[in-house]
């Protein structure tokens, strides 16, 4: 299934990309997507490590690693927010 994956702020700059389409075998969770991204190595492996602080939103709602993904979901990955 195809997902629309978005990156923001420091992660967008680290990866050098703002968004991309990624195909994953269904069913899949956020955790499965992170495994695929980390397998790219280098900055992907480092920035999305369990020792790093980052957040995931699925369809504009905050999500967790167990969140199940559906075809066409917008999955946003970003650092902890710093507004206000």
């Amino acid at each position: 299934m195809m997902l629309n994956v978005l990156y923001f702020a420091s992660l967008r700059e680290t990866f050098g990309i703002a968004s991309e389409h990624i195909a994953l075998p269904a069913p899949a969770t956020v955790a499965a997507l992170i495994v695929v991204l980390r397998a790219r190595g280098d900055s992907w492996f480092d920035a999305l490590g369990p020792d790093k602080r980052w957040r995931v939103a699925v369809n504009e709602e905050m999500a967790v690693m167990d969140t199940v993904l559906q075809v066409g979901d917008a999955v946003a990955i970003f650092p902890p927010v710093t507004g206000g």
């Binding site: 923001f8 970003f78 650092p79 927010v81 710093t82 507004g83 206000g84």
Partner: peptide, 14 residues
């Protein structure tokens, strides 16, 4: 509202 905004609304400062 401001406390939650600072930890939950997707804004980032550079």
């Amino acid at each position: 509202i401001i406390d939650f905004l600072k930890t939950r609304a997707p804004f980032w400062k550079k």
